[in-house]
């Protein structure tokens, strides 16, 4: 078995079996339960179009996945350094790239656990509406590169910063900035700066695609440019993580 797979299995086991990991899954369930309940029972929210509700759930799940990726990525190297486990890992006959990919493999498992947990909620709020199957597919298609982009980015910071706290804080600020389209009003997003930001922001690419597919029923061909934006960011952040790992000091 390759070192990448071995590290990924260890990471996944640690994330899912540890008290911390199970606490995260429990918190995620609680957040999605409250949101779903509000969407179907709140007087004003329940008036939303069914597709709009699914769109909101997809954005929320992507943001929560990115938040988890940032938390895990920030801990990936700086946390190992703080706990004294980084040196033994670097002393094993494993390359920096294998360590990065192995640790990100753990994040992929964490993201799909989040995704799997979210599916019943998406179904519960959107089962009577349109494009539910597309919603589920596009959440995986766009959510995965967006979540992993933030995971790789936080990983890179973690390799460069001495403490988890510094890496986490920087990654969270970046995440809040990039996820701002979730809370921005249409007026802000329609001005030239908002439009330019939307064009290059992977979060906007995912949200606009969810909107386009679930609400406007547009085909996949209309999403290719947005998918390209998300993939370019994924490649850039992966390169950043690899470069940072090569420069890691112990």
């Amino acid at each position: 078995m390759s070192p990448t797979v071995l590290i990924a299995r260890k990471e996944a086991g640690e994330i899912l079996a540890s008290g911390r990991g199970q606490g995260w899954l429990l918190a995620l369930s609680a957040i999605l339960s409250v949101l779903s309940l509000l969407l179907v029972s709140n007087t004003e929210l329940s008036l939303l179009d069914n597709a709009q509700v699914v769109y909101m759930m997809m954005g929320t799940v992507t943001a929560l996945g990115a938040l988890l990726a940032v938390a895990l990525g920030s801990d990936a190297v700086a946390g190992e350094r703080e706990r004294g486990t980084l040196v033994p890992l670097l002393l094993a006959p494993v390359t920096g790239t294998e360590i990065v990919l192995g640790k990100m493999g753990g994040q992929v498992v964490a993201w799909f656990a989040t995704y799997g947990l979210a599916l019943p909620y998406v179904w519960a709020v959107g089962s009577s509406g349109q494009n539910l199957a597309q919603a589920v597919g596009y959440l995986a298609l766009f959510g995965t590169p967006v979540v992993l982009t933030f995971g790789f980015y936080a990983y890179g910071l973690s390799a460069r910063f001495v403490s988890v706290r510094s890496a986490l804080l920087t990654a969270l600020i970046t995440l809040v900035l990039f996820a701002s389209p979730l809370v921005m009003g249409p007026g802000l997003r329609d001005n030239p700066i908002g439009k330019a930001f939307d064009a290059v922001n992977p979060f906007s690419a995912a949200l606009n695609s969810f909107d386009s597919v679930v609400i406007d029923s547009q085909p996949f061909t209309a999403q290719a440019g947005r998918l390209a934006v998300a993939i370019v960011w994924l490649a850039l952040s992966a390169w950043f993580a690899k470069r940072s790992m090569e420069r890691t000091e112990v």
Binding site: M1, P3, L6, I7, K10, E14, A17, S18, E80, R83, G84, T85, L86, V87, P88, L91, A92, P93, V94
Partner: peptide, 29 residues
């Protein structure tokens, strides 16, 4: 690294594992 053994000053471990499981994981690398 395949032919040297190192005990660093701050020797950390994955504390949630048992000692045999941890060494088995290291051996597999």
């Amino acid at each position: 690294h395949r032919v040297i053994g190192v005990l660093p000053e701050q020797a950390g471990f994955y504390d949630w594992m048992s000692a045999p499981d941890y060494l088995l994981w290291v051996a597999s690398l």
